[in-house]
Amino acid sequence: MTQSVIESSLIKFISVENIVRTNTKEPLMIESESNLIFMYFVQGAARVHAGGEEFDVKKGQMLILNEDAKASLVVHRKTEWVQIVSSGIMIASANRAFDVHQFIVIEAKNHFIKHYIDSLILEQHHAMAGTAYIQKYLFMCILYHLFVEYELTYKAVTANSRQGQIETIIQYLKDNYAKNIQLDQLAETFDISKYYLIQQFRQLTGYTPIEYLIQIRIHEAQRLLVETDLPISDICVQVGFRTQSYFSKVFKRITDYKPLAYRKKFQ
């Protein structure tokens, strides 16, 4: 087992280990703590339990564990993997790029990935002046090619299911617009990264989830102003706004009318 440490403004800490296990009678526990862990399987396979799920990871695949994630591995034959641990600014960037919740498995059979990982390990065996900078560069190359693989495979495979999920969220907003819905709560309810939720939602609708929610509320307020004689204060609460002043401000911005003026013109 070999290990090295790199520190820079972009990657505060990175360790690289070449790990070989023949058989694990007890599950091997891995805790990412405040780090992001990349595990590239060189040979063999492992049964992994993470995020409440069990799955197999095999040769040529990269398992990425999010910060504060926990995983257990069971190995039944000789298995080798390269484990890279990163923290710092890279955490947020990688989380957004790979849409990592607790974990994600990426097909990493691109020969460039294997080449850069081999070079990363080789640099440790021939450590000299400048090794840390070379390893940092190699790690960035690995991330780049992983992202390419993710874009070409994972996103393509899940595009339809993601669209279906966004459509489900849209229906949820239509059914619950009067409730106090926050972006974090929405992302948690549907088990999706809020950054990815914003990106996919805007791509499908042209709005962020909260902007779309406000459009629903204003559309319903328009209907109530025209079809009922409810007081504006009641309509404000009924469509999900907390204060009448904010409701009037948003209504004017979207429709070019204040609520009372809209009622007088269209009722």
Rank of each mutant, 00 (worst) to 15 (best):
K70G: 04
V82L: 04
T158L: 12
Y246M: 08
F13H: 14
G206C: 02
H101E: 09
Y257P: 02
T255P: 00
E151Q: 12
F201W: 01
Q135C: 11
G44E: 02
N18Q: 10
E211P: 04
Q163A: 05
E188V: 09
L213K: 01
M62W: 01
H115K: 08
D256W: 02
E220W: 02
G130T: 04
I214T: 04
V250T: 06
K59P: 01
E17W: 12
G44F: 10
L36Q: 00
Q215R: 05
L138I: 14
G240P: 04
Q185V: 03
Q203F: 07
V237W: 03
T131F: 01
A129I: 11
L204H: 11
G88V: 07
Y207M: 03
S15M: 04
F190Y: 12
S15N: 13
T168N: 09
I117G: 01
E67T: 14
T153I: 15
R96A: 10
V48H: 06
P27D: 07
F147P: 01
D56Y: 08
Q124P: 00
S233F: 08
K179A: 15
I170F: 02
I254P: 00
I235Y: 03
N66K: 15
R253Q: 11
S93H: 07
Y133G: 05
I121C: 06
A97V: 07
F38L: 15
E220G: 04
L10D: 10
A159F: 09
R253D: 12
I19E: 08
Y257D: 00
P27T: 05
G88W: 11
V239Y: 02
Q83E: 06
V148I: 09
Y154T: 13
I37R: 01
S72T: 08
L138Y: 07
I14Q: 04
H145V: 00
V250C: 09
